[in-house]
Simulated scan of single mutants.
Amino acid sequence: MQTGYYSSAAGMVSQFNRLDTIANNLANVNTNGFKEDNLIVGDFMRIYQEKRDELPNQNQTKEAAQFINRTMTKAPQIVDSYTDFSVGEMQKSTNSLDFALAREGLFFAVKTPEGVRLTRDGAFSMNDEGKLVTKQGYEVLGDDGKAITFATTDSAIEVDKNGQIYTNVPGGITLTPNKKLYIAQPENLKNLQKEGDNLYKLEDMQKISTATESGAVLQGFTEKSNVNAVKMMTSLIEANRLVGMYQKAMDTQMNDMNRDAIEKIARKA
């Protein structure tokens, strides 16, 4: 069996997966609050160093050497993926209903037809019913778990760094406390699942705490994507070149080496 061919094919598949992830990152480079995704390709040396004490054969023996040599021929593959939740660039806006979170690990909570979801995209607006909603029309939740609604007389809306909303007294300019934004803080960011529309899903909503004194809410700002376009373009070029290299290795295995072997066998015959 030509293990080199299968290893090259698997390596090409791994690079195809990388290309999909890189393309998605680049497509969202201008998406508010988007977080960059990355893949980890299995590396034999790293895996061996982590698992060498669990080898099925005693170390420094012929059996162990044979086991390691067989393992080294295994194909490279995607072994893990992760999302970079670092904070993106803050951009000033002219919309008083735009909000950004200046700390990592904090999210706004919104109500969708599938249940409560989390998002970092704070580019909100007010619908015809006076409710604070996302671009997709999902209701933004307050710390009481209900939608945030404004009256038609609320001509002045201000929000402090902890998400407390203040609106003006009808017919006056004095501000009075209204609802408060629900600033969600998941226990473990690794449990978040991307769901589309820049939303995150958490299976166990009990593993979310409320950051009542977050000090991270910025009114009149939007958080841009944390995708590094230059790094992504470099990774895109690298992945494309690796696909070409793997393709050449497969061609060499199936054509050049086989042809050479057939010619040698024919001469001996």
Results as ranks from 00 to 15, higher is better:
R120A: 10
E195N: 11
A100M: 00
E104C: 06
K179C: 06
T149V: 14
V227L: 04
V217Y: 01
F34G: 02
T21M: 07
K207T: 06
A211K: 08
I262F: 09
K35I: 07
N32P: 12
T252C: 07
G122K: 02
I265T: 06
A261M: 14
D37C: 00
A75K: 05
R52S: 14
N32D: 11
E89P: 01
P76W: 07
Q91N: 09
Q91H: 06
V29M: 11
S125M: 02
Q219E: 03
G244S: 12
G163N: 03
I40L: 12
Q58W: 00
S214G: 15
G4H: 03
A10T: 12
T71W: 14
A10R: 06
G172I: 10
F99E: 10
G33V: 02
V29P: 00
A147Y: 03
V133F: 03
N38G: 02
N198P: 08
M1S: 09
A123V: 05
F108C: 06
E187H: 06
M232E: 15
N228D: 11
N30Y: 11
L106S: 02
S209T: 13
G130A: 03
V110N: 05
Q91D: 08
A100K: 01
Q49L: 12
K231E: 13
T112M: 04
A65Q: 11
G33C: 04
A109N: 00
G244R: 09
Q2P: 15
M257N: 14
Q185M: 13
V227N: 11
V79T: 13
T176Q: 15
I78C: 07
A9D: 10
G88F: 02
Q77W: 00
N162Q: 04
S96R: 13
S7E: 03
Y182M: 15
E263Q: 15
K35T: 04
Q66M: 13
T134I: 08
I262Y: 01
K62E: 15
N191R: 11
N198G: 06
T167Q: 08
P76K: 02
Q206K: 15
D121R: 10
D37H: 11
R103C: 01
R267M: 13
M45C: 07
I78A: 00
M254N: 09
R70G: 13
Q58T: 13
A75H: 00
K111W: 08
G196Q: 03
S209C: 03
D144E: 14
M90R: 04
M254L: 15
G244H: 10
G4T: 07
R46C: 05
G4N: 05
L202Q: 11
P56K: 12
A269W: 11
D143K: 07
D43V: 12
